[in-house]
Simulated assay, not measured.
Amino acid sequence: MEGELPLIEAPSTVEPQNARVLSRQFFDRLAVLEEGTHDYQYVRNTLIEMNLSLVRYAASRYRGRGDEMEDIVQVGTIGLIKAIDRFDLSREVEFATFAVPYIVGEIKRFFRDTSWAVHVPRRLQEARIELVKATEELATRLDRDPTTAELAELMSLSEEEVIEARKASNGYTSTSLNAALLMGGGNDDGEAALADFIGEEDAAYELVEDFNSLAPLIGELSERDREIIHMRFVEELTQGEIGDRLGVSQMQVSRLLKRIIGRLRAGLMPAGV
C-alpha cells in the first residue's frame, strides 16, 4: 500500500497547498479500503495529520476567548475527523471547503457547552452578582480594590462567605460582545470585537433547504435504504458497523451507500443537469 501512495514521515508538517493535492490521492485510496484494516487506519490517520492546519486556522479566530488554545484545537480536530469520515470525492468540492464548517461547528459547540465552568448553587450565583456590585461601589469610593473585610462589611456577610462568592464567580464567564480580542499575526496588532465573530453568514444554513428538499426523496427510498441512511448519518455508524447489523461486508455497504447517495443527489439536481 505504501508503494501506491507517497510515504509521508511527518504528515503534520506538510504545507497546506501540498496537503490539498496529497489529500485527494489519499481519499481515492481510502474509498477502496475496508474499514478497520491497517491500511485503512494508516490512510485515515495520515489525512487527519495532513489537514491539522485547517484546525489551527479555524482555532486561531478564537484565541481571544480566554480558553486554552490546545483545548480549542482538540475539539476542532473532532470536527476534522467527522469531515474526513463523511467526505465523498464525487461531491466535486475541495476538502478544505467541506471540512471547515465541521471544525468551526465543533468549536462553537464547545463554547456553548462550557459557558459555565462549574454548576453552582443559586445562592452563590446571587452572591456573585452582589459581589460584583459591591466591588464596583467600593472601588469607586476608595479608588482602589477593596479588601475582603471591606466587602464583607458592605454585603453583611462573613469573610468566608465573600471568599466563597469569589470562587463561584470563577465558574462563570461573561464577555461583552464589544470586548476587544487581540488579533495577533504579522506586524499589525489590531483588535476586533467578539461580535465580529457572531452573526456572520453560516454556510451550514443552506443545509436546511437541502434537508427540506431531501425529505420527499428519502421518503421514496425502500425501508432498507432509509435504515442504511439513518445508521450512517444519524447514528454515525461506520460502514463496518452497518455491515455487522445488516449481515453484509463493509464493501457491500460502501456500494449501497454510493448507490443511495447517487440517487438522492440526482433527485436534487435541476432538470436537464
Rank of each mutant, 00 (worst) to 15 (best):
A149R: 10
L124K: 10
T175M: 12
K133G: 00
L257C: 12
K82G: 05
Y40R: 07
I103D: 07
S249M: 03
V118A: 09
L30T: 01
N51M: 00
F111W: 07
Y42H: 09
E2I: 14
G66W: 09
G247N: 05
R20C: 08
I218R: 01
R61H: 05
M183C: 05
D67V: 09
S174N: 13
E15V: 05
V104A: 05
T140Q: 10
E200D: 14
L214Y: 11
G64C: 12
N18Q: 14
R226D: 05
S115P: 01
P146Y: 10
A83S: 15
E235S: 07
A134C: 10
V208S: 12
Q125V: 13
G3K: 15
D244G: 00
V75G: 04
S12N: 06
L33E: 09
F95S: 07
E206M: 08
H38E: 13
M251A: 14
L256A: 13
R122T: 05
P216D: 01
D71Y: 05
K167N: 11
D88L: 15
K258V: 01
F211D: 07
V100K: 02
Q252N: 07
A192N: 01
E160H: 09
A58H: 04
V104P: 01
D189A: 06
S115V: 15
V248M: 08
D244I: 03
S174T: 04
G76Q: 02
K133T: 00
A165F: 06
G190Q: 00
P270M: 06
G66I: 02
L142N: 02
G272K: 11
S249E: 09
R112P: 01
